[in-house]
Design a protein around this nucleic acid. Structure first.
Lengths: 213, 213, 213, 213
DNA sequence: TATGAATGAGTGTTCATTCAT
DNA sequence: GATGAATGAACACTCATTCAT
C-alpha cells in the first residue's frame, strides 16, 4: 500500500544505521580490515551512500565515538557529580557501570578497536585520547582524589591508580573478544575479584576506624 | 674447514635473521603496517627469500611467536622452580622480570601483536594460548597458591588473581606502543604502584604477624 | 497577469541560469573538474533539475557553446558589415573587440574549453568549427582580403593570415587560464605588441605612399 | 630457443617503454583521461609494474618531461650557443627546429597536454613552467635581444615578442591535435607565413641598409 | 516541474605473493 | 638456495546519473 516504505521510512535513520553497521564491523574485524563495502552492505545501502553522510572512513569512526562512546562518558560524569557517598562506593559503582556499558554491551569491541589501530591511525588515537580517555581518566582520578582527601584511601597518585583500576577491565574486554574461545574466563568473578583486590589494596588500613566514627 | 664460515653460518641463520627482523618491525609498526619488503630489507635478504622459509606473512607471525616467546616462559618456569623464599617476593620478582623481558625489551610489541590479530588468526590465538598464556598462567597461579597455603596471601582464586596481576602489565605494554605519544605514562611508577597496590590487596592483613615469627 | 511574474520568469530562465552557472564554472575550473553539483548550486537549483534540461554534462557543454558563443560571432559580422574605413583599422578593432568579448570576459574560458575537450567530444569540435571558427575565420579573412585589394596589405593567404592574427589571442586566453599563476604576463602589453608586430608585418611597405595620396 | 626472451630482453627497457606508452596516451587522451591501466596495457606490463618505476601518475608525467622534453630544450640551448650568424637566421632556424621536434614529432601532443591539464594539476604546470617554458622563453628572448642590439630588429620587449613567436606554433600543434579533422590546415604554409610575417614585422625597416653592407 | 537521496561503476595506489633466472 | 621483477587483487573515495516522491 505504501509506495516504497523502505526508502521513505528510513531516510532520516540512515546515518544511525550506517553507524550501527560500522560499530558492528569495526568491533568484529577492526578498523583497517573493515571495508566500506561491508559497512554499506551491512547497513543496507550502497557504498556511495556512506559518503553522503560521512566524509571518510576516519570520519565514520570519529562520528561513532561521538555518538556512541562520548555520551557514556558524559553519563558517568553526571553520575559522579550527583553522588555524595563514600568514594569507595562510587568507585565500585563506576567499575560496574563501566563493565555493563562497555564490557557487556555492543561497545565491548571499542577498546580493542582503538588500541589495535592506534599505531596505524594516529589521528584516531589522538581523537579518542582527547575525547574519551582523558575525560574518563580525569573523572576516575577525581574520585580517587576525593577518597584520599577524606582519608578513605591511602595516599597515591590518583592518575596512575585510576589507570590501574581500568586496565584490568580493558584487558578483560579484549580477552573476551579474542581469547575467550580458547581460554574462557568467568568475567563476573574476574570483575568482582578485581574490585575486591583493588579496594583492599587502596583502602586505608585504619579506615575501619573511620567507619567506626 | 669451510673457507667462508661467516656466510656458511649466515645461511643457516637466515630464518632466525628474518624472524629477528620481523619481530623488530612487527613490534615497531604492527602486523598490518609491516610490509614484507621492510622485513626483507631489515634482514638483509630479498623479498623472495622470506618466502623460502615462511609460507606467508601469517606464517612468519606464527613462527615468531613460537621461537621467541616460549623460551621466555621456560626461563620463568625454571626460575620459579629454583626459588624458595616467600611467595610475595617471588611474585614481585616475577612482575619485574616480566616487565624487563617483555615490557622493556624487543618483545614489548608481542602482546599487542597477539591480541590485535587473534581475531583474524584464530589458529595463532589458540596456539599462543596453549603454549604461552596457559603455561604462564599456571606458573603464576602456582606461586599465588603457595602464598595462600603459607598464609601470606588472603584466600582467593589463584587463576583469576594471577590474571589480575598480569593484566595491568599487558595493558601497559599496549599503551606504550600505541598511546604514549598522546597520553604518556611513567611506566616505572605505574609498575611500582601496581605491585604495591596488588600486594597490599592480596596480603593477609595479619601477615605482619607471620613476618614477626 | 501571472501573480508571480518573478518566479514565472525564473522558471523560463532556468536553462539560461544553468548555462550561466556552467559557463562560470567551466571557465574557472575546466570541464572535467567541474562537478554537476557545483553547477546546480551555482545556478540555485538541485542537481536533478540540471537533468531536466540537459541530457548530460556533455550536452550542457554543447548547449553552452551554442547559446553563448555564436551571438558574439554574429555581432562581429554585423560590425564588419557596417564598417567602411581602412582594413587596418578594422582589423585592429576586431582584435580589441575579440580581446574584450572573449579574453577579458566570462567567455575567456571557452577557447581552452573547446580545445581541451575537442578530442573527447569530436561532435562538439565539429559543431564549434562549423558554427564559430569557420564563420569567424571567413569574417577576418574577408577583412584581410579587402586590405590586400586596396593595397593596404601585402599579398598573402587571407585564411592563414587571419588564423595567425587570432592564434596569439587564443594562446593568451589559455595562458591566462592555466599558466599565469606560474608565469604571469602583461596581457595588455602582449595584445598591443601583437597588433603592432602583426600590422607592421602585414602592411605594405609603401603603404605610407597610399596614405599620402 | 631462448627461454622467455620477452622478459629477459626487455628488463632494462621497462621504464622507457612505459614512458613511451604514457606519452602516446597522454597526448591522445590527456592526462586525467588516461588510466594507468591503459598505460600499463599499452606498455605490455601490469599496472603494478608501472609503480615499480614511477611513484605516481604525476611522477610519470614529470619523468616524461624530464626524459623527452627537456633534452630538446637543451639541444636548442646548445644550438644557440654555437651559432654566430644574424639573429634573424637563428630565429628562423629555431622556429623550424621547434616545428620539427615538437609540431611534427611524437611530442606534438605535449603542449595541449600541459595547457589542458594545468588547471587541474597545478603542480604539473609549475614543473613544466620551471623546467621547459622558462628556459625556452629565456633562450628565445636572448636571441631577440641580440638582434635588437645588433640593430637587426626593432626595439621591443624580447620576452613578449618571443612569446608571440611561439604562440602561433603552439596553437598549430593544438589545432592539429583537435581540429584538423574538421578544419584542416596546411601546416607548412602556416609556419612559413608566420615566419615571414613575424620577421617582416620585427625587422628594422632600415635593415636593408645592413644587408647592403 | 523540481527535488535530493541513492546509486555503482570507475581509478589511483598498495602490497602479499609468485616465478623465471 | 637466492633474487627481484612482475603480478593482480583489493580498497578508499568520487561523481555523473537516476528516480521515487
Amino acid at each position: 500500500m505504501s509506495e516504497n516504505p523502505r526508502r521513505q521510512r528510513r531516510k532520516e535513520d540512515r546515518p544511525g544505521e550506517i553507524l550501527d553497521a560500522a560499530l558492528t564491523l569495526f568491533a568484529e574485524k577492526g578498523f583497517a580490515a573493515t571495508r566500506l563495502d561491508d559497512v554499506a552492505r551491512e547497513a543496507g545501502v550502497s557504498k556511495g551512500t556512506v559518503y553522503l553522510y560521512f566524509d571518510s572512513k576516519e570520519d565514520l569512526f570519529k562520528s561513532l565515538v561521538k555518538t556512541v562512546v562520548i555520551p557514556e562518558v558524559e553519563r558517568a560524569e553526571t553520575f559522579v557529580q550527583h553522588h555524595d557517598g563514600p568514594a569507595r562506593e562510587l568507585l565500585v559503582q563506576l567499575v560496574h557501570q563501566w563493565w555493563e556499558t562497555v564490557g557487556e554491551s555492543r561497545l565491548c569491541g571499542v577498546p580493542k578497536l582503538v588500541l589495535s589501530e592506534a599505531c596505524n591511525f594516529p589521528e584516531l588515537a589522538r581523537f579518542y585520547t582527547e575525547h574519551v580517555i582523558s575525560r574518563a581518566s580525569r573523572l576516575i582520578a577525581s574520585v580517587i582524589e576525593r577518597g584520599i582527601e577524606t582519608g578513605e584511601f591511602r595516599a597515591c597518585d590518583p592518575q596512575l591508580t585510576g589507570r590501574l583500576l581500568i586496565a584490568p577491565l580493558v584487558f578483560a574486554t579484549i580477552w573476551k573478544q579474542c581469547m575467550s574461545p580458547f581460554d574462557p574466563m568467568d568475567m563476573q568473578a574476574y570483575v568482582q575479584q578485581h574490585v575486591d583486590l583493588f579496594l583492599h589494596g587502596l583502602l586505608n588500613d585504619r579506615e575501619s576506624d573511620h567507619e567506626a566514627d
